[in-house]
Computed example of a mutant assay.
Amino acid sequence: MSRQKENILFDLDGTLTDPKEGITKCVEYALNKFDIHVDHIDQLIPYIGPPLHESFVELGGLSPENALLAVEYYRERFRAVGMFENSVIPGFPELLQYLQDEGYSLYVATSKPTVFAEQILKHFELDHYFKHIVGSNLDGTRSKKQEVIQFVLDENQISPEQAIMIGDREHDIIGAIGCGVESIGVLFGYGSEQELRSAGADHIAAGVEEIRNIISHIGNGDYSYGYTK
């Protein structure tokens, strides 16, 4: 049976994997270079998800120029150790296998640089599930989530009506809306339910199994399951 929405796009950080330890330690490392210190590393959780340069400006209070330096300091530690201070969200390998077996085409759309996303997914043996892994460029271009999603759609000749975007932060939802793509916000990442609803998520999933249920209902033409409007 053919489905209208047979292409599933996933965010990486906070959706497929929990990168808290690596990202917060790398942010701390970068901020320390500017003599900025935090009382507890959990204060840096808001850096998980949004484009890094944007976060160093908006959250760290750095100038755009210093934010560029901070990104380089961040990557210095991230390349060496940070990218693997990470873990797969429990249940996701099984979900990806199920969706692949059901004939869905799976993609990754992340603000993290593509080269790092590819290495992380390969490290956790998840890369083979995805037809295309797309992130930002190392020079800072294509860092907005809408740009990443649109690139996945364009490169794979997917119409917005044929896709679903799954993510844990408002940037995922706003990016999906900007591309005309239906969205599922997940609550096991780093965005609150209020954040996801306010951003306009079409569906909310409390856990991995609920993602499967929502996709199954959509595949059967039932768009009301998990609907937030």
Score class of each variant (00 low, 15 high):
P160L: 01
C179D: 09
A205D: 07
R212T: 03
I164V: 15
F124M: 04
F116R: 03
L153M: 10
I204S: 05
L187I: 08
R169H: 12
R142V: 00
L153E: 12
V148R: 06
E193Q: 14
G207P: 02
M165Q: 09
H128N: 09
R212P: 03
I211R: 07
K122G: 05
D127A: 08
I174E: 15
D154T: 11
D172V: 04
A117W: 11
I204E: 10
K122R: 12
I166F: 13
I173Y: 14
F130D: 10
I204A: 05
E155W: 07
I133A: 06
E182G: 00
L138V: 07
A205K: 06
R169P: 07
R212Y: 08
I164Y: 13
D127N: 14
I158D: 07
E161P: 05
D168N: 06
R169E: 10
I215A: 04
E118Y: 09
V186P: 08
I218A: 00
S216K: 11
V152K: 09
P160W: 14
Q194P: 01
A176Q: 09
G189P: 07
Q194S: 14
I177S: 15
V208F: 14
G167K: 11
D154W: 10
S216C: 04
A176H: 11
D172M: 02
E210N: 02
K131T: 10
H123Q: 11
C179V: 08
Y223I: 00
H132P: 04
N213Q: 15
N213V: 03
K145W: 15
K144T: 00
Q162C: 02
R212H: 09
H132V: 01
N220Y: 04
Q150I: 01
F151C: 06
V148A: 02
V134L: 02
G200I: 03
